[in-house]
Amino acid sequence: MRIWLPLQRLVSARYFFEFSSRILPWLGWVTLLILLTGLGWGLFYAPTDYQQGESYRIIFIHVPSAWMSMFAYMVMAGCSAIFLIWRIRIMDLFATSTAPIGASFTLIALATGSLWGRPMWGTYWVWDARLTSELILLFLYFGVMALRAAIDEPRRQGRAVALLTLLGVVNIPVIHFSVEWWNTLHQPASITKAAAPSIHLSMLIPLLLMALGFTLLYLYMALQRTQGAIIEQEIDSTWLQERLSNNTIETEGGTGK
């Protein structure tokens, strides 16, 4: 099975660490560049909306965060499944690193949505299916993090958390389809695979730039956390100690703000 060799290497802690060290500085700068471009475009260059005026500019934060809140959970669930089936430890570490980041994106999506809802809908919050299921997502992230902190024994910890993560995955389609299945106050998706986006190109470009920037930012933070976790676990391993004595580890820990 020669084609699997690069993959097998990548999932070993050592190669994952070295791979991350190599791409993190680049990733940091590219992320920053894309985020700044998206922000500038969204705030200064994108036109005013015909119904919502300037308040719609909140979507450049809100929509990418909401997407990321679900994307991060799907990555976490994918890692958990691989970890449960093949017992690849790096997957457990990556899922661990993802949880707080996903929770943050969920929090941002909820808070910014609320700040958009107050002037536009006339309320900060309603208990409709979309908002409620997104709030449940936040609780799921908290549950996953709390469960991990509660179990000390590493083997049981990884398995229990992976199971809980996989149970929670039912919520993702509920969030996505809530606006189609039920009457909600929240509007349906503006960008779907089935039809042309119902958002004008001049607003779509900065939105997609922000979404790309958030995805890269997520990867950046998750890789760095995973590196930290690898050091924590492999602290006495020969390869790590050798690298330390050769002084080849990036001590600054990458680029960015």
């Binding site: 965060s65 707080p100 943050s104 941002i108 808070a111 958009w116 933070m221 760095q224 930290g228 703000k257």
Partner: peptide, 23 residues
């Protein structure tokens, strides 16, 4: 909205880096 987004993400970037450096 932009402030909340910035503060939360900056805190994330910092805590990821702090964890890495601590280890």
């Amino acid at each position: 909205a932009y402030g909340i987004g910035f503060v939360v993400l900056l805190a994330n970037v910092r805590s990821a880096r702090a964890y890495y450096r601590k280890q």
